[in-house]
Write a protein that binds this DNA or RNA. Structure first.
Lengths: 133, 133
DNA sequence: TTTTCGATGTAATGTTATTACATTGTGAAA
DNA sequence: TTTCACAATGTAATAACATTACATCGAAAA
């Protein structure tokens, strides 16, 4: 019998916790540095944990930053398409979903016979607080 | 008097030509390798040319690939938002624009007081030809 | 002519990610 | 219980992507 969902391992839990308490996306090497005291020694320990967390939907990769964030809505699994708004100043990431955007991109793909595996939407700019300052 | 638009330098022209004749995005180091015979020796020569070409809108960076493509529509300058559909098999990139998507992301941003600097949309999947095979 | 400024050349370094291989722990099958 | 299989881990080395620093060159402006 296969389990659909397993507990996190120690390393996975540590990486997830590091991301959860960060206020901005962290690079794999920054995570590594923050987990030295917990016994982390090599990048692969971080990347392996991230692979699992990404597959589980508990973490997202921000492509334009080569960095990672904890999922803001870890409970609502499988919301089709996620967009990220990333502040250049404070680094804060806002995660949202838009059905119309998903529908439009899906329509384009259907029209062109393109089969979608994964969609990345990242908006770089300035959040309200930082734009005001 | 300042010129709004200047001719490309030799290095810029070589990099653009390398991208234009490629059938898929090229990494900076792949471009470097392909331009060895033209006298290129170091990564910086490629990155400097790419910076200018990106600024001029003649080249796009594909964030999910850490690679670059020549713009498919170099004449229509400043089409607000571009999306890319990238085939995992053949590497081909299809570049398109959708006013509704742009409007929706703009609306979200306006609602949240977020000022957009740059938007990245990349769809990874399989093109019609490769999906059929 | 001299100054200035953008482009270039080269080396070194920094950052991000993967490959390779040995070891350990845990649960299922014998 | 022993053995087997497999996932997770530890460690080192290397590959892939990108930038910093500094010297030089050449064309156009003063």
């Amino acid at each position: 019998m296969t389990t659909t969902r397993s507990e996190l391992t120690r390393n996975q839990a540590l990486v997830l916790a590091a991301l959860a308490k960060a206020e901005a996306p962290l690079s794999a090497y920054t995570i590594l540095d923050r987990l030295r005291d917990d016994g982390f020694r090599a990048p692969l320990q971080v990347y392996r944990a991230l692979d699992k967390l990404l597959a589980a939907g508990l973490v997202h990769r921000i492509e334009t930053l080569n960095a990672f964030v904890a999922c803001a809505h870890p409970h609502c699994h499988a919301h089709g398409l996620i967009a990220f708004a990333i502040c250049e100043d404070c680094g804060q990431v806002d995660e949202f979903s838009d059905a119309v955007v998903r529908e439009r991109l899906g329509a384009w793909s259907a029209d062109h016979g393109f089969r979608i595996d994964k969609t990345t939407i990242e908006i770089r700019g300035h959040c309200a607080a930082c734009a005001a300052a």
